[in-house]
Structures are given as structure tokens and as C-alpha cells.
């Protein structure tokens, strides 16, 4: 009896393994939906339940089902408006893409978007959010692409700073900074940092200078950066073809 039960359990486990393997390779989007359901919604107040943006106190207010449903609908509308506010009108040469998911561990900072080779996207394409350069396309699939953001440790990109166009090298990471700035270069807090890399449109804004300091070897200046957005809240991007 015990052996029979173990055999039955193995059959069930085997069936689940096959089903999950098929889902992983042929229907990964269902996994992304589960992940989206488990993740907090961007722009929701803390304490909100995942995926609904409804605070516990408002859903219990009045104790009437219609009032609660009204509050839930208002919250969902607010959530959609957050996304809509990130959808500027498209221009020629740009492809709008939604962010499917993010790299789940802390080794990389990458986004997975729903535009790919079939949309004219190629590796190295610039990716912008509300006019700001946030990264480059690293890998392309037929209908999706992987975007390496400037918060990725391995990203390095030539940039220029301010009206004088001081040259620097943007170093990606949790706290991106611009290094290799000549000591004599006039760099001040508030100056705009913009792209100057091959393959990317020139002068795409990236960030502003927060503060300047001397590099550890005292040979260069370096600048810490301020960003007007939270990369974790990005839901839509534009990819420049």
C-alpha cells in the first residue's frame, strides 16, 4: 500500500514536471502574470494589496458592497492613469513597448519588453522613458527584447556634461556615476548629463549632476547623479529604431 502510494505520488510529480516544463518553454507569459499578481503595483500607497491598489481601510469603509466596489474601481482607474501618463504620443522611428518583467536578482538591472525584431528593433538601440535615456537593447527576440538599463553594473557609456560638453564615462550600477572627467572641466551640480556614445542618438538626456568629487586616484573628477524617475516604476518605454 505504501509502495503504491509512493508510486502514485511519483506519477503526479512527473505529470506536474512535464506541465511546468511545457509552460516554461511554450507559455512563459503565464508565469509573468503570476509574477505581476505577486508583485506590488507601481504607484500604489504602501500597505496596498498586490495588484489592486486598494488600501485595506478604504475597502472596509462604510461596510457597503457598492461603496467598496466604487472605491475599488476608482483605485483601478488611478492605476491605469499612472500607466497612461507614461504613454506619450509616438514619433516616427520610435517603437513603444510595455515592460513585461525585470531581472529578478541583483546581478543585473534589465527590463524585458514586448517589442522585438519584428518591430524593427536591433541590438544596441536606445531606450528612453519620458524623453530620458534609460538603457540600451541587449538582446532581441522576434517579439520581445531585453533592455540593459543604466543601473546595471556592467554598463559603461561615453557621455557629455553641461553646456561646455565635458567628456565623461557613465558607469552603471545601483548608484550610477560619471567618472573620467578632466579635473579642469567645468562641471557643477545641476548640469545635464547626455549621451555621446556611438550607435545612440546624440544628446539624449540621462540625468543631472548631483555632486562632484575627486576620483580615488585624484586624476579625474567624478559626478554623482540625480534621476527624475524610479526605474522600478517604469511600465512603458520607447525604443529608438
Amino acid at each position: 500500500m505504501g509502495r503504491q502510494r509512493i508510486s502514485n505520488n511519483h506519477w503526479i510529480s512527473g505529470a506536474l514536471i512535464v506541465i511546468l516544463a511545457l509552460l516554461i518553454f511554450f507559455a512563459p507569459s503565464y508565469g509573468w502574470k503570476i509574477r505581476a499578481w505577486l508583485s506590488p503595483s507601481p504607484g500604489c500607497p504602501s500597505g496596498s494589496s498586490a495588484g489592486t491598489c486598494v488600501s485595506p481601510s478604504s475597502s472596509q469603509a462604510d461596510g457597503q458592497s457598492l461603496a467598496a466596489e466604487n472605491d475599488a474601481l476608482k483605485a483601478q482607474l488611478a492605476q491605469l492613469q499612472v500607466v497612461a501618463s507614461q504613454l506619450p504620443t509616438s514619433t516616427a522611428g520610435e517603437v513603444r513597448a510595455m515592460v513585461y518583467s525585470r531581472y529578478p536578482m541583483n546581478f543585473r538591472n534589465e527590463l524585458f519588453v514586448n517589442a522585438g525584431a519584428n518591430d524593427g528593433i536591433g541590438p544596441g538601440a536606445a531606450v528612453v522613458f519620458q524623453g530620458m535615456l534609460i538603457g540600451q537593447v541587449r538582446a532581441v527576440f522576434p517579439d520581445q527584447a531585453v533592455v540593459q538599463t543604466i543601473f546595471d553594473d556592467t554598463l559603461k557609456m561615453p557621455v557629455r556634461i553641461g553646456a561646455a560638453g565635458a567628456d565623461g564615462l557613465l558607469q552603471g550600477g545601483s548608484y550610477p556615476f560619471v567618472g573620467s572627467i578632466a579635473n579642469a572641466a567645468p562641471v557643477a551640480p545641476g548640469a545635464i548629463v547626455y549621451s555621446a556614445a556611438p550607435g545612440i542618438p546624440y544628446a539624449l538626456p540621462i540625468a543631472t549632476v548631483a555632486a562632484t568629487s575627486t576620483s580615488p586616484d585624484s586624476l579625474f573628477q567624478q559626478a554623482s547623479l540625480d534621476f527624475p524617475y524610479d526605474v522600478n516604476n517604469i511600465q512603458t518605454v520607447f525604443i529608438i529604431k
Binding site: L23, P28, G31, I34, F112, V146
Partner: peptide
């Protein structure tokens, strides 16, 4: 893996 995988191919 199904939930964490973030690209079309693992």
C-alpha cells in the same frame, strides 16, 4: 523557474 523566469527562454 516558471515564476521567476523573466525572458521567453530560460
Amino acid at each position: 523557474v516558471f515564476v521567476v523566469n523573466w525572458a521567453p527562454v530560460p
